[in-house]
Design a protein around this nucleic acid. Structure first.
Lengths: 217, 217
DNA sequence: CGGATTGCATTTGTATACAATAGAATGTCA
DNA sequence: TGACATTCTATTGTATACAAATGCAATCCG
């Protein structure tokens, strides 16, 4: 059986990622403990984790609310993610082995199946896409990156706009993954790194178009 | 009066940074609560913060110990710090104002005084150096960077070897700061960014020499 | 003798009661 | 009426007791 603090963490996190609780909304620890069915102690653990991921924020008076990001913060989030994932992919290229390379290929095949349909299966796309990035992160063998990156990758704003992505966006993602695999096969760190940089920035562009933000009017 | 969890955090943190508790050393929450004079509840808060900064780690069985980093992890820590501080300095260059520019100049004058002596005042050097980087971080106006960077900057391994830095290292740091100020004055982000990149990498080199690590034998 | 197993001691995890504090509401007086 | 002080209330912070889990060592059995 999992720990109560983990259950609370997952529950609150899913509320935020799904958009069930809106950015800026005020929360109380007691309310969260009711919702997640555990006492305030493990809730406080969970809340602190979510604060560190910047999904929750505390006002000056320690009151709790769901984070509400400015366009500048979202832009920077993608920038940082680009820098760190490019770095991760360099490390991964140096440490890649045949077994994991095959796993990457399998994951990307699953991803291909998900989008090669009349109506792309976005949920599966998101899951397999995440698996792909997670496996790379695993290959990078860096505890620090493994701690920092997930908080930049899993974001409510991204999650909520995913279903608006065009087929071209999804196809391009798949192609990027293919190229990454090629770079890994060639053990070419610089190639892998540059592909990842554009992969992430392109994701930001798709996101911007989907949400109409990031374009000065 | 500060909160108990903050007092515990500062106390435990100072033990780690000063080297009073050694890397790899096992700790218990109860022992820490005795040492810091508060109950286990705020100690757990403090410990979670320190875990996030990777100064403390938990084993698979949730037992607590002081982090002990490999050379690879230290190298990467400097790499990440270089990437993030270079990014911070770009943002800062765009947002710099006259008042803060003057503050930077004052801080660097204080730093100069600290090292222009028969025996350089390392403690003051560390303090003012930190002030310099903190003020830049403040100018960058990025909550995310403000959360991530301090954990990369304040590190026990660095702190403990600081007194071994040569006068040349200290003078070079001062010169880097001067150049950063010049870049800020010229509002030249790229200049500022590149200076910061070498500034951090040079710091890693000084550190490596001081500790004899990072050199394959 | 080696390896699994059980029981005990240590340590972490959780619930709950209470203390401290910040915000809101109410009252008071010029 | 409006600014200020004063309760009152809602919320977070802390201590403590107890539950669960983990490591360790003695024990048992092959």
């Amino acid at each position: 059986m999992s720990r109560a603090s983990d259950r609370a963490y997952r529950k609150i996190r899913s509320f935020i990622l799904s958009g069930e609780v809106r950015p800026g909304m005020q929360l109380t620890e007691e309310r969260l403990s009711e919702v997640s069915g555990v006492s305030r102690t493990p809730v406080r653990d969970a809340v602190q984790r979510l604060e560190n991921e910047m999904l929750l924020v505390r006002s000056a008076s320690k009151r709790l609310s769901v984070a509400d990001w400015s366009n500048d913060e979202i832009d920077e989030m993608f920038t940082l993610r680009g820098m760190l994932e490019s770095h991760a992919v360099e490390r991964a290229a140096q440490r890649m082995d045949a077994k994991r390379l095959n796993q990457l290929r399998e994951i990307n095949e699953a991803l291909t199946k998900a989008i090669d349909q009349a109506t792309p299966d976005i949920a599966t796309f998101l899951t397999t896409n995440r698996q792909f990035h997670d496996l790379i992160l695993d290959c990078a063998q860096s505890p620090r990156l493994s701690k920092l990156l997930p908080a930049l990758i899993e974001q409510p704003v991204v999650r909520r706009t995913a279903h608006q992505y065009s087929r071209e966006d999804l196809m391009q993602s798949r192609a990027d993954h293919e190229e990454l695999i090629a770079a890994f096969t060639a053990k070419d760190e610089a190639w892998a790194s540059s592909v990842m940089t554009s992969h992430i920035r392109r994701a930001f562009h798709s996101f911007s178009v989907a949400t109409k933000i990031g374009v000065e009017e």
